[in-house]
């Protein structure tokens, strides 16, 4: 069994690129619609909440509410873009479109496919996160150069959430199950991680939960970068995101091997 698991892991460091390029080619055909789709939701949040609540809230942690919120929205849009790509689009490629079946008939392994899909989801997350960042920078809520520093963290956030979502994809019998992940994990995470309001506004019991959430780790790095405030515990936050990216990868590869190679 162990031997078969090892055979399912990535065969080498570059097979995944072929999978990534397949997705890129498919995306290129619908790029405009896809970009708009990925940006619309967080932008609506940004301006809706930012303008509306901003007036009532005034300043948060020494900056305007909309600047505070924009940093949260960069991380959040990376989270949702990569989650949705992995649960819906990847699931379609695995099941209805039989894309994975075709790939598995070549020398590419399940691990290679998973890696390629994660890298692809992280790419889309980076696009979405950067898109919000560009809007924020254009409106003067952040410096352009800060955005550049934030980019690797945005990508890592995408990778971590894709990796987590891959477990859901590996286990879900059908699309209907994804709604549970969305409503029970992703949406609460948005409110518990300090994306729309500071974590210290939460009851203290919840603040303990916050400490382990990947989105919270992501925001704790992205926000100081974007707002130019001092970074604390960067190593811890990046380390936590790396764990969220790596551990679920091995787990989902094992689950997918069991599912696809009965």
């Amino acid at each position: 069994m162990w031997k078969l698991y090892v055979a399912a892991l990535p065969a080498n460091g570059w097979n995944w690129i072929a999978v990534w390029r397949r997705n890129y080619l498919a995306w290129k055909k619908v790029a405009l619609a896809s970009i708009l789709g990925n940006l619309a939701d967080p932008l609506i949040y940004l301006f809706g909440l930012g303008a509306g609540l901003g007036m009532m809230v005034g300043r948060v942690d020494g900056v305007s509410y909309i600047a505070f919120l924009s940093a949260g929205m960069v991380a959040t849009s990376a989270m949702t873009a990569s989650t949705f790509e992995t649960i819906y689009a990847t699931f379609a490629r695995m099941r209805a479109q039989r894309t994975w079946e075709a790939i598995l008939h070549t020398q590419v392994t399940i691990g290679d496919i998973v890696l390629g899909e994660l890298a692809w989801a992280a790419t889309k997350a980076s696009l979405a996160g950067t898109g919000i960042g560009v809007v924020a920078a254009t409106l003067g809520y952040t410096e352009w150069v800060s955005l550049l520093y934030a980019l690797p963290v945005i990508a890592l956030t995408g990778l971590a959430f894709a990796s987590l979502a891959m477990i859901v994809t590996a286990l879900a019998p059908s699309y209907e199950y994804f709604i549970f992940y969305q409503t029970l994990v992703i949406t609460p995470m948005l409110f518990l991680s300090g994306a729309v309001f500071p974590v210290n506004q939460l009851p203290s019991a919840f603040q303990h939960v916050t400490r382990v959430l990947p989105l919270a780790h992501s925001i704790d790095v992205i926000r100081p970068i974007m707002l130019g405030s001092p970074l604390v515990n960067v190593g811890l936050h990046i380390g936590a995101l790396c764990c969220y990216a790596v551990v679920p990868f091995f787990l989902s590869t094992a689950l997918l091997r069991r599912r696809l190679m009965p």
């Binding site: 570059w14 072929a18 397949r22 080619l25 790939i103 070549t106 020398q107």
Partner: peptide, 8 residues
């Protein structure tokens, strides 16, 4: 094209 890439 896409399939050939799977064979490196």
């Amino acid at each position: 094209l896409v399939f050939g890439r799977y064979f490196r």
